[in-house]
Design a protein around this nucleic acid. Structure first.
Lengths: 199, 199
DNA sequence: TTTCATAAGCGATTGCCGTTCGATATTGAC
DNA sequence: GTCAATATCGAACGGCAATCGCTTATGAAA
């Protein structure tokens, strides 16, 4: 019997990634994605059950790569404050503002999803755990496990908010926001070495 | 000459509000909204230039009413902690979780908006100013104007994140989140009377 | 009261796009 | 070499926002 060729699947993913990051989930069309993958629109559905599944197949590896890259960057910083600042800056400014990234894809895809699409939150939880671990690595023992989990969940919610705003071309004044969040986290961690904020 | 009748406009807004809150922006159709408003789909466009404009015309008065109601509730609380807790609880749990509310409308409508739709951020800024004022009212002088503005912006981003999650039927564990945020804000305000979090 | 320009109202149509269908061509297994 | 499974593809479907042209109601001017 005939068999699915990986090369076709790869071509579709590559084309989809380009279209989604350039045009967003909604304006990108299956027709255009298929054309650039040198196949027919209907054939895309042999490899992916729906446009939403295709988008998630593009988004997931992208986000994981970005988070792992961020993890390495945080580890390279020396002080607790520098680590936290790098974490927040990556999560709330660098990753969402990446022109070739997929935060817009995510927001558009998920907000058009219907309840029966049953988006599974594994990726979200994986990311939250990673962020919580980075927080603990950064500030050490002064942060309880439960506190770091709460902070990580809060940070991910802010990330979602930033992503949504970005979709509206509403600037979030990224570096200022990152600075505020860094101070909040360090204050929560009870870090007394925090310099007085230069207001 | 013939004149637009306010009653028709009102009927369309009422019908749209019901459909949007029950089905969300995307699944609600102009046809169904028009039918329940006893008019033709094409006639809706005499009163509102697009589906997005209609949604914003529904959303804006709803949000303003909710924020003003929240402001009164915060004012009624006695202590700084109670005020902050009430503010955060309203913003991150009660308003987004309101079944008859429009947070889902907002997220879906805005994430499908295109750049040329030029969403104007007046409503967002009005809300941020209100939240900042509530924060200053709650904790008093210990919070500089710039700090309260930053915190308000952060809170609104979390609100957007919560709204996005709600659209995915991902529970945000609202009360737990609200408690975390309350502690963060009070810690930032340098409130030493904050009881040790029961971890 | 009559006339008339204007705009509300509406059924039909358009255009777009995700998805499905039916037919055909290709490939791996026996 | 034969056959069955299935990748591939053009055509068609269905849903929906938005537009078009025509009809009709209405307020103002005469």
């Amino acid at each position: 019997m005939r068999v699915k060729r990986d090369s076709v699947r790869e071509a579709i993913l590559t084309s989809a990634s380009l279209h989604f990051s350039a045009e967003g989930y909604l304006r990108a069309t299956i027709g255009a994605i298929a054309r650039d993958a040198r196949t027919a629109a209907s054939n895309v559905y042999v490899y992916f059950p729906s446009k939403l599944d295709l988008a998630l197949a593009v988004f997931e590896p992208w986000l994981k790569k970005e988070i792992l890259r961020l993890e390495r960057a945080v580890r390279r910083e020396k002080t607790a404050m520098a680590k936290v600042r790098r974490l927040v800056d990556g999560l709330l400014r660098r990753i969402p503002e990446d022109e070739a990234g997929h935060t817009t894809t995510l927001v558009q895809a998920l907000s058009t999803a219907r309840p029966n699409d049953r988006y599974n939150p594994d990726l979200l939880h994986w990311t939250e755990r990673k962020v919580a671990a980075m927080l603990r690595h950064a500030v050490g023992e002064t942060l309880s496990e439960r506190e770091s989990d709460s902070l990580a969940r809060g940070l991910m919610l802010v990330f979602d908010g930033v992503a949504l705003r970005r979709n509206l071309s509403i600037a979030t004044v990224g570096s200022d926001l990152a600075e505020t969040m860094t101070r909040l986290i360090l204050a929560q961690a009870g870090d007394a070495s925090l310099p007085a904020a230069a207001e």
